[in-house]
């Protein structure tokens, strides 16, 4: 029967470009989906890492008895902060409690080729530990970290980080009241 003889050459010639076009479209859509998913994860990592770094810094600032600000890199809006806090040593062998002083430093350093990272250092530790960057799902660098003094015993902290995967930045800012802070240097 004539109508059941299958494809002829001319039908194949017309069908082939259509199939190629369709497969190309599906391929592009697949790539777009994977790329979007990768960007979403990178955005999430950027948001979490930025807020986490801000929280760590503000938590330590809250207990500060003195703070000292210094510029990390000349001409760039990136600061280091040195936080001194006091605590009581209530050793049972001691007649009186002894006030002990500790220092916590958050510095920004260019330790790798890509950009700047925040490092935390406790006074007794020789090594510093990075608290940002190096995430497998998206490496982030610090583009702004500024401390200002808007009121007595208050420090305004502004942190902006950029994802090296997406090129997008995420900014967080807040202020922290330091009830025991007596000295604020570098403001």
């Amino acid at each position: 029967m004539k109508s059941e003889r299958g494809f002829v050459l001319i039908e194949f010639i017309i069908a082939l470009p259509l199939i190629i076009f369709l497969l190309y479209g599906l391929g592009m859509a697949t790539m777009k989906i994977f790329s979007t998913a990768k960007f979403h994860v990178a955005d999430y990592v950027l948001e979490v890492e930025t807020q986490d770094a801000l929280t760590r810094i503000t938590d330590d600032l809250r207990a500060a008895s003195s703070v000292k600000r210094s510029n990390a890199f000349t001409g760039e809006p990136i600061d280091n902060i040195e936080i001194v806090y006091l605590t009581l040593n209530s050793n049972a062998n001691l007649k009186n409690n002894i006030v002990v002083m500790y220092t916590q430093i958050y510095s920004v350093q260019r330790a790798r080729t890509h950009g700047a990272y925040i490092y935390a250092q406790h006074q007794n530790e020789v090594k510093t530990s990075p608290i940002t960057g190096g995430n497998f799902f998206g490496d982030n660098v610090v583009t702004r970290l500024q401390y200002t003094k808007p009121a007595e015993k208050v420090l305004h902290v502004e942190l902006e980080m950029e994802s090296l995967v997406t090129g997008r930045s995420f900014k967080v800012a807040t202020a922290v009241f330091m009830p025991a802070c007596e000295t604020m240097n570098g403001f």
Partner: peptide
């Protein structure tokens, strides 16, 4: 979620300023 996070940071900023006024 990012907007809510910013709202929390703004509230903390306001509390810090209010606490400073209260301390004085």
């Amino acid at each position: 979620a990012a907007l809510r996070l910013h709202a929390i940071n703004l509230a903390n900023e306001q509390f810090a300023m209010i606490e400073s006024l209260a301390a004085q």
